[in-house]
Design a protein around this nucleic acid. Sequence first.
RNA 1: GCCGGGAUGGCGGAAUCGGUAGACGCAGCGGAUUCAAAAUCCGCCGCCGCAAGGUGUGAGGGUUCGAGUCCCUCUCCCGGCACCA
Length: 864
Amino acid sequence: MQEKYDHQTLEQAAQQYWESTKAFRAVASKDKPKYYCLSMFPYPSGKLHMGHVRNYTIGDVLTRYHKMRGYNVLQPMGWDAFGLPAENAAIQNSVPPAKWTYDNIAYMKQQLQSLGFAIDWERELATCQPSYYHWNQWLFLRMLEKGIAYKKTQVVNWDPVDQTVLANEQVIDGRGWRTGALVEKREIPGYYLNIVQYADQLLDDLDKLPGWPERVKLMQANWIGKSHGVRFAFPYTLDGKEEKLWVYTTRADTIMGVTFVAVAAEHPLALHAAKNNPELTAFIDECKHTSVMEADMATMEKKGLPTGIFVSHPLTGEQVEVWVGNYVLMGYGEGAVMAVPAHDERDFGFALKYKLPIKQVIAVAGQNFSTAAWAEWYGDKQAGVCVNSGKYDGLGYEAAVDAIAADLAAKGLGEKTTQYRLRDWGVSRQRYWGCPIPIIHCESCGSVPVPDEQLPVKLPEDCVPDGSGNPLHKRLDFLNVPCPQCGKPAKRETDTMDTFVDSSWYYARYASKFSDGAMVDEETAYWMPVDQYIGGIEHAILHLLYSRFWSKVMRDLGLVNYDEPFANLLTQGMVLNHIFSRHPEKGAIQYFAPDEVELLKDESGRVTGAKSLADGQPVDYKGIGTMSKSKRNGVDPQALIEQYGADTARFFMMFASPPEQTLEWADSGVEGAHRFIKRTWSLGHALSTLPRSDVAAKLPDGLASIRREIHLTLKQASYDLSKHQFNTVASAGMKMLNALEKAQKEAAAGWEAVAHEGFSILLRLLSPIAPHITHVLWRDLGYGDDILAAPWPDPLEAALVQDEVELVLQVNGKHRGNLKVPASADKAAIEAAALASEAAQKFMEGQPPKKVVVVPGRLVNIVV
RNA sequence: GCCGGGAUGGCGGAAUCGGUAGACGCAGCGGAUUCAAAAUCCGCCGCCGCAAGGUGUGAGGGUUCGAGUCCCUCUCCCGGCACCA
């Protein structure tokens, strides 16, 4: 065995062994319990970044740990290969997205392989392969048949210069990222999936997921946002016709306080009123340039204009004016809201601004109402009772809502309903690099689904987008097809699917990788659900919710038999890095990689700015944020792997922080991880020449305490592993090595046996994190052929016993000394020993004890 | 703005149920080895203090014999907000 640690030859040898023995090929088998360990697949952006290393190391640690624990493990890998960055790269470099994507996949695959992950590569898939997206299309058609998929208008960001639809990410401060042109809202038709139909199931089934973090379940529940309220109408007459303006509210108890109604700029009433009103027309036009993003909507200045149209209050018949409000969303709810300035903070601000009446209809005993400023209790629905509300005066929230809903229902103007914040999922994208939506548009037959036998509708792979519009419009060979119904010339749909569709069911496809004739096969029933899913917390809502929805649709179509796809979820914290950019007046925003700038700091070490190393000019410091291709702040792990090896990179990543915690990237500390790996090798080398024997029944005190330290550390590490706290598992390895090196130094009689026992524990504990070095040492030391086949070590109780325990001695809660007592001592004996101790005497200063708290095994607190 | 999370030495972090704050590392300092350096090894290392001791887990308050941990208020940072993935 080599004396010097050489990661290159050693890691290659280990990887070759796994390759040649097909160590990670997963085969369905009833002999062992199955364990499907899945990490979220990467977008092939070019190179791995540290977030990937973190994600996949966590997955690999769990995979290898469960293999050693005797599970039949599947860990697959693939590529979320459709998406916007490939089109951006195409615009920049004139390379077809397909070529760029496949090149990236090849490079990143080799990077993943060099990290030694226990992946079954035979199941690899990429979502841009027709054999995969065939089934996106097939299932979409089934949803269409079931009415789950349907068509309606959607609001998109329109770049008037490039004549193209922009993603939210491509809109910077209301302008197109490439053109700098003011972005407009535009309404176009698109396909939606009726996820709201599944809202109750998606909400209720969260209770079936004890293995999910509470925070994720809470976020999903809040996102679904089930609310109970009243949908009711304000009647009005327009052009001699009786009409109704519908709204929804969760605060029907405040209905008597309505002083106006607000509608969205796109609402028919607003458009009608604008006909002879140039000021309103201008305002509606201005609203076209406001953002469609919820965060912008919520923070922008609330503006409005009266329409001059009045509607009747459904209970009092009073006339209230309709306003157009820039904060009312057409696509959400009814596109109109009742306004109760006295009891809604947003309405209150709006009323103050436009001097609209504020009418108090809820009172809380002991609180005075004033229209001068908003007070927290105005909006508290549980605190007060109705006032100024006629027959409803004195009623509390529930009673008032019930009475008012009943009266509205009696007039045919309203009813109690349940509503969700969740909106249906718009899946149409006006983009090239995605899965084609399998529809053909025929002038006589309308939108006709592509027949199943013509699937998959293959995306041409040689287009090069140029930033203006969808290149599929120019691909006549793709575009022009006969109508499947009447045979006349027709046009293919050129919209592609949201890439969230691709990632909503890939986990099921891995499990049926060898099936070509169906979306999934019976192997899926064996492997699913995923036992452990691992991925970034940023996916807590959208991806996970869409996957849950997709699973339920597949279940309802009889394709699978599970309700929930992911039994256990580990949400990995993001790896963050500094972000630097320049924003030119016109044109594209420019990002700088952290190694392209020099940081400027104030005296406290806080980053205040930066300047470009290339031109010495300042760049904007945008704070820290998640590593991403678009912000150019990702760190490629390649240099780390080459310099220190995969084991060091993996070990360092696990050691750096607990998996669920956000991590600000810094490579200080890699040296320490590497030192530890090298020291492990050195001790292994030293032990390789030492004879192995059983640990003696009676050990000298020093050796016994070292052995105890190892088993105690193992016990702690086993607990930490069960909690997925891998950073302390890594430090447990360090503690064990420290203890073993101490034994080596002291070299008391019989130490070899303790050392071999301890070292074999250390190797097994470490092998999920640093698989290469532990694989080689396990063989070189003759412990066995394959450490993956070795049983997981359990701490020996016999090694843990001790005769004496040390307790903490406190006087008045302050640590004043330590106390050694026999392990068998009872509370009374401990209390007596504590009171008699020198430290206690000193700090009690002759006062009698008022109380003595004894926590066995921990401490004694004497209160005087 | 709304929803979720976080804040502990110079840095990453540890502390399972409310029970020794700072495990394990990094950086730093001192020493050994070396012609010298790297590597390696040994020791020190929250802050104030010569010491005794005091003080200390983002800020302020509270509960408790005892609070990093529980409760209330606040600040800052991160993630998500439906077309980045």
